[in-house]
Write a protein that binds this DNA or RNA. Sequence first.
RNA 1: CGGGGUGUAGGUCAUCGGUAGACCGCUGCGUUUGGGACGCAGAUGUAGAGAGUUCAAUUCUCUCCACCCCGACCA
Length: 568
Amino acid sequence: MLYSKLFGKTIKDVPKDATLISHKLLYKAGFIRESTAGRYYLLPLGLRVQQNIQQVIKKEMDKTGAQELITPVLHPKYLWEETNRTSSVGFELMSIKDRNEMEFVLGGTAEEMLVDLVRKFQISYKDLPFNLYQFSVKFRDELRARGGLLRLREFVMKDAYSFHTSEEDFKVEYEKMKNTYTAIFKNMGLNTEVVESDNGYIGGEYCHEFVVGSEIGESKFLMDEMGYCAHEDVAVFDPENKNLDEIEKEMTEVDAVRGNTMEDGEKLHNLPLWQQMKDVLYVDEKGRFILAVIRGDLEVNEIKLMHAVKAYQLRHATEDEVRQKLNSEPGFISPVGIKKQGAELKIVGDESLRTIKNAYTGANKKHKDYLNVNIDRDYKVDMEADIALAKEGYLSKNKKPLIAKKGIEVGNIFQLGFHYSSKMTGASFRDVDGKEKPYYMGCYGIGLARTLATVVEVYHDDKGIIWPETVAPFQVHIVGLDLEEKQVLENAKKVYKLLQTEGIEILFDDRIGVSAGAKFADADLIGIPYRVVISKKTKDQLEVKKRSEKETKFVSFEEFLKILQFSH
RNA sequence: CGGGGUGUAGGUCAUCGGUAGACCGCUGCGUUUGGGACGCAGAUGUAGAGAGUUCAAUUCUCUCCACCCCGACCA
């Protein structure tokens, strides 16, 4: 490719909207331009990188025996209604009607489509298992797009869906995908943590995120030195017993003229925070009240709570609701003697309540507290569950301190189980015993543009991008200097042609009348792995420099070919 | 959707009640040419949209729209 013909120029100033390094560099170097929020043009350079990423993924996926296909982008809405996902997806569905008023959903994920495809065939146990994947544009009307390519409303995703006769068979595939994903990202130079996480709207019981550690990432997760690694949403920990050796004292109601915060209670009674009970009142999407009770030094994990009570939306109750519906008082709520007052109330106690004795808490009246409250004796909960938010420094179940990390989620794998096959009619196979059975499923996604941005986040310096060779838009960047001298120009063209015949992808900066400094700056910004300078100085040699290194060296054409071959 | 912010040339910004300017970039000519060269000449704007106040609005007020940041959501 001749640089003089390349569409998309480098610029010096970036739009003020760009805050992330990847966004700035990709914009400056001419890889992307914005259309509207969360929708980007991929320019020729950007597309080349994305296609390389796609190749890396495809190669590893094909190795596992997965097969590539393509589904329509417009999904018939009735499919989404069949699984009841028109109301429960985590992202806003975009829909559209055709001339016959038929309703379609712009695909944001394709579980229903794949099941619908598979059920068009008479599947038997002999056909299973199989894994089908595609690269296709996904539409998600995200509440907020963010950070350049990091969170888009339209993006190419590799999504794969596997079908199995049984859970055991699925688990083999799941492990295979775990390894495949690790390999895929490694091939692009990305080290990923495999993080246990929450399924969200996809359904199923467990899943793992592939996360690249980064301060700008949105995924918060916790690790310990024994290899435990889980997203904040699902991370478990050992709450540690606090004072279980104390004997249970008599519960008393005392005056408590204090504010509404935990700290106010701590100060007033001069007792440790962990001995206090924290009571948080939520309302779910059906209007049920849910009182989460937890040890005072811990916080409620709303994701865990939602799973425990099978709700998919929670909000905090208002002060009026606390007073009127539950006859309690904000800041003084307690499970002890709380009246349901006609409202549906579910009290969920965290496991940590079993680690303390003689707790103190509000008395459902303004400026009244209870002291020496003990579970079972003084109050009962409707449900005991782990609803606590893990934090750095807490002990893991391995009794090792947890370390908090942040990262970018570039891919994930989900166990779906029978989630879809049980909801969609005909989603079944004929088993060896002649019976029709639902198949067991999994799904596996990678966002290409986000992965691209993540590579830039990891591989750059103050001058520009430093592409890993597997995804670089070109392998070699020839910088031609002194090109107004015929000899030099001819020589540069010759090298360009010869390298091309070797099958090497080259960007040749053939611009005449552009200063050396400008060309070097552009080469650094674009970040192609090898820079080759050809000028009147270099004569019949090539001046080679790796983007990732400082030194340049003069080599012959043949020696350079060897360097390139060696690097693969 | 809640909170905060921004909309002026392709980009970065200035101007501020009296109809717009700098730098980068772009075009042409010339001089330059190993780390973003210089000179000269030139092109580029319904100041996001609409309404209001005013003799006069890019400037003040309101509404809408778009975009960015923080939060809820996610590949």
